[in-house]
Nucleic acid binder design. Structure first.
Length: 326
DNA sequence: AAAGATTCCAACCGCAAGATT
DNA sequence: GAATCTTGCGGTTGGAATCTT
């Protein structure tokens, strides 16, 4: 494999493009297609290296480039794809018409990554950074998790799963509490997640009660619309019925087998965490079978955050077929 | 109003893989 | 099969714009 010849030849311009240069590049490509990028600059009368021309074209001048804010759906898609593909920006960009890998990468690093960290989610692994924080339940602010809806179910489940495995490893209560339940190492779970997700993609995208490798059956935890209805108060924490929530750590195993409750003012909702934790693909299923998510284009990020409580169901757009990348 | 901090994003760099010689 | 060329990718940088103090 030969090394890329250096473009930094004397006389070649670097730095920001001028409108005249842009026009030359556009005119040339419209007439001749780009052909060989290496020879293009000379033919087009540009004092740039081919690499620079290619980047300028693909990231900025291409006619199908979509500019402006990322829509809520685009953001959701990016997060979901990133959780599966990692930093494969080009692969992610391929699923977002009009967006470039560079733009997505910038958006990720400038916005999404920070939000995930704020939520206590590792932007690299998409698993919880809260494992240690959960030892102090006052830090487990479910509002913070739920308020940032894009990851809502997937990430909550990841967090829960991760939390569980982490807690299980360090807790003496594990064996007695989750005896009989099958838990896999995280990598294996992720693999299962992907496989099931892929299978579901292939199976007409809606599998109401998909079987799982552990022999279990996916149980819809709650109607997706329930998530719309949750109103989390400022001081909301995850509360577990009948337990001391100041000592939640000790009850983690209980969470596995019992339902948990999200308070919403005077009302509350119960969720069966068992099904959440034992059905890693449920999020994908939900995403694929739930009604279309609301497309929100709030003017600011804060607007998005504050509006998030209205939008808890999530759907990967139909165009998304991650099986291509498996 | 000014200075400093932060955010945004276009552009660059180096590497790697596939294609070609 | 080895060397070289071409293209694409992901990480990083630097300057402009914006925000905060």
């Amino acid at each position: 494999m030969g090394r890329t010849p250096c473009c930094d030849k004397s006389g070649l311009k670097k730095g920001p493009w001028t409108p005249e240069e842009d026009q030359k590049l556009i005119d040339y490509i419209q007439k001749h297609d780009h052909g060989s990028w290496r020879t293009l600059p000379k033919n087009a009368g540009l004092a740039r290296c081919g690499k620079s021309c290619r980047l300028r074209w693909t990231n900025y001048l291409r006619p199908d480039i979509k500019r402006g804010r990322f829509s809520f759906e685009e953001e959701e898609t990016i997060i979901q794809l990133h959780s599966i593909l990692g930093n494969k920006w080009s692969a992610i960009a391929a699923r977002l018409p009009g967006r470039t890998d560079n733009e997505i990468k910038n958006y990720w690093n400038g916005h999404i990554k920070k939000r995930l960290i704020r939520m206590g989610i590792d932007p690299v692994t998409h698993t919880s950074l809260l494992n240690s924080s959960l030892c102090n339940p006052t830090l487990l602010n479910l509002c913070g998790l739920l308020g940032l809806h894009p990851l809502i179910k997937t990430e909550l489940m990841r967090i829960a799963t991760n939390l569980l495995s982490s807690q299980c490893q360090s807790s003496g209560l594990v064996n007695q509490s989750i005896q009989g339940q099958q838990y896999l190492p995280q990598d294996a779970q992720a693999q299962q997640h992907l496989e099931v997700f892929q299978n579901q993609q292939l199976q007409n995208q809606t599998v109401p009660n998909a079987p799982f490798p552990d022999g279990g059956q996916f149980q819809e935890v709650a109607d997706t619309n329930l998530w719309h209805d949750i109103v989390i108060s400022d001081s909301d924490l995850m509360t577990v019925p009948g337990v001391d929530n100041n000592n939640l750590e000790a009850y983690i195993p209980s969470l596995v087998s019992d339902s948990f409750c999200i308070s919403s003012g005077s009302d509350s909702q119960n969720y069966n965490l068992t099904s959440l934790l034992s059905t890693p693909a449920s999020s994908s299923d939900n995403m694929l079978s739930s009604p279309p998510s609301t497309c929100m284009n709030s003017s600011t990020e804060d607007d998005r955050d504050s509006s998030c409580s209205d939008i808890y169901d999530f759907q990967i757009p139909n165009l998304l077929d991650v099986s291509d990348y498996m």
